[in-house]
Design a protein around this nucleic acid. Sequence first.
DNA 1: ATATATTTTCAAAAATTTTTGAAAGTTCGA
DNA 2: TCGAACTTTCAAAAATTTTTGAAAATATAT
Lengths: 168, 168
Amino acid sequence: MKLTEAKQQFISSWGAFGTHWGINRTMAQIHALLLITPDPLTQDDIMEQLNISRGNTNMNIRDLINWGLVERVLMTGERKEYFSAEKDIWKVVKQIVKERKKRELEPMLKLLDQLEEVEGDKRDKNIKSFVDTVSSIKKLGRQADKTLDVMIKAEENWFVGNLVKLFK
Amino acid sequence: MKLTEAKQQFISSWGAFGTHWGINRTMAQIHALLLITPDPLTQDDIMEQLNISRGNTNMNIRDLINWGLVERVLMTGERKEYFSAEKDIWKVVKQIVKERKKRELEPMLKLLDQLEEVEGDKRDKNIKSFVDTVSSIKKLGRQADKTLDVMIKAEENWFVGNLVKLFK
DNA sequence: ATATATTTTCAAAAATTTTTGAAAGTTCGA
DNA sequence: TCGAACTTTCAAAAATTTTTGAAAATATAT
């Protein structure tokens, strides 16, 4: 397979992949493009390579920056802004985990705390079933939260080494 | 908070939560409803409680069954089909992990294998950057794949106990 | 076998999300 | 201060996803 074709494949699969994770196709594609491009790219480069409009490009780059996955790069003597993606995949994964934890897991745990305090007789079958479900989700959620905290701080070696040993 | 309100909140948040994970709102809501309802429900019960059409209900129940999260229950002497969700959250999580691994992670790893074999001189900066990215994603992906395999087989106690100790 | 209850399908409609592109805003050198 | 280069915004259009509901298919009781 030729490089051009391989790149194309990677970008398009990464985009499709993203949609299974609540990330829009274009955002994932821009990320993919920046991941496999050694040098920083401008908005125009990205627009051209992915065939998307200026506005779309701009918005999705902004999102990627908010996610901490892409950064603006200033080239000396150049007026245009350049963009480049973090290439260390372990760092990328940790960053995504960190953000999703903050955006999704933590608010969910907060809500579950409230729901657990539902009024009424705990012997009522309906109340019991509700509280049991909420409690067990909360318990697992808290556990996951702690586990992810450690993961976020860990080095890749730690993950690949220790954890895997444990699993044997 | 009253039970009715708490249930409503849970269902609607679970639905919103689902959309961040590429799952449609209704499917997540039906799942939530079945999780907190002690007895199995019929299609009509679900339609009524969530205010959705018959077709929509039917399709999403089918999806939930395909995901292995809901099962048909036959009530003796009843003609209608009833549905009930697995209530053990650890089992639910494992089932979801298992399915997503099969549907997403494994095909992605297969693709990366192919992409890694791109033609050309590895000293070319563009080829090198591409191959490096693909390889490192593959490496981490394979690791995750193995780790998830162990997790799928594990008991909840193992997760809550051993893993957490390791993390301290 | 027929009538009735129940489930499934799927084309069209509705809702939602994404994309576009032109206008407004900003930055910066001369 | 002006004007060109560049970036950002956002209402409208396009694309995509989800939902509806009525018709078709299937199952069951009599």
